[in-house]
Computed example of a mutant assay.
Amino acid sequence: MKNLGLLTALAVLSVWQLDSLTLERRWLASGALVAYALVLMSALRRVQAGRASAEGGRDYWIAYATETGTARQLAQETRKRLRKAGYRADTLALNALATVEPPDRALLLVVSTTGDGDAPKTGIGWDDERVSACYAGLDFAVLALGDRGYPRFCAFGLEVTQRMQAAGARPLFAPVQVSQADPRMIDVWFRQLLPEQG
């Protein structure tokens, strides 16, 4: 990145040394060079971030399925607590699970149920039977969010649990079922994940 900044500065300086260009063209060329350098820097940052992500691996992936954002917020809080405890953890949408390698320790699933037991937007099509099969023999845990006022309380979270077990994944503990983001049950989730912090 520093070399790119230095090269850009040299290129702009060279433009100003050209006597054959009018003042207007010098400004135009300098602006174009700076804009191009900014585009290159942005692309380099993305590539470096992708490399670090691919090379670093993960102790935990926290996959969320959400309609209103609650599951995503709880997934981010889970990531924050795991990182504070020294683990490598990241979040992603449940239906993006096919795009990543399985984690080193466990897959954590924070999933909401909508309507009559349906998957939320970020959970639709998450498992084409290849995805859950990638986790055979690995540990997983489910935080299932719902509303006890509906007859199929936490149905999607329980369905995800069944699919993971059918594929051969091992549950760390029984699914934690939460009605309307009840903080007491969310605390149960964190205490089971990180008992030393409870």
Rank of each mutant, 00 (worst) to 15 (best):
R79V: 15
K80D: 14
R81C: 12
L82Y: 00
K84G: 11
A85E: 05
Y87K: 13
Y87A: 14
R88D: 06
D90P: 09
A93S: 10
L97M: 12
T99H: 13
E101M: 07
P102I: 08
P102A: 14
P103L: 05
P103A: 13
A106G: 07
L107N: 01
L107M: 10
L109I: 10
L109K: 01
V110E: 02
V111D: 02
V111P: 12
S112E: 08
T113Y: 00
G115E: 02
D116Y: 01
D116V: 03
D116K: 05
G117Q: 12
G117S: 11
D118C: 08
P120D: 04
P120K: 08
P120L: 07
T122M: 13
T122C: 11
I124W: 10
G125F: 09
W126M: 02
D127E: 06
D127K: 07
D128N: 13
D128V: 06
D128H: 10
E129D: 14
E129T: 14
R130P: 03
V131H: 14
V131L: 15
V131I: 15
S132K: 00
S132R: 02
S132I: 04
A133N: 14
C134D: 15
Y135V: 11
Y135Q: 12
A136W: 08
L138G: 10
L138K: 13
A141P: 00
V142T: 00
V142S: 02
L143T: 05
A144K: 03
A144R: 02
A144Q: 01
A144D: 02
L145C: 06
L145A: 04
D147T: 01
G149M: 00
Y150F: 02
P151R: 11
P151F: 13
F153M: 03
F153H: 14
F153I: 05
C154K: 01
A155K: 05
F156C: 09
L158E: 10
L158K: 01
L158Q: 11
V160M: 08
T161G: 15
Q162N: 12
R163T: 06
R163C: 09
M164P: 11
Q165W: 04
A166M: 14
A167R: 04
A167N: 08
G168W: 09
A169I: 07
R170M: 13
P171F: 00
P171D: 00
L172K: 07
L172Y: 05
L172D: 02
L172R: 07
F173Q: 09
P175S: 02
P175C: 02
P175E: 04
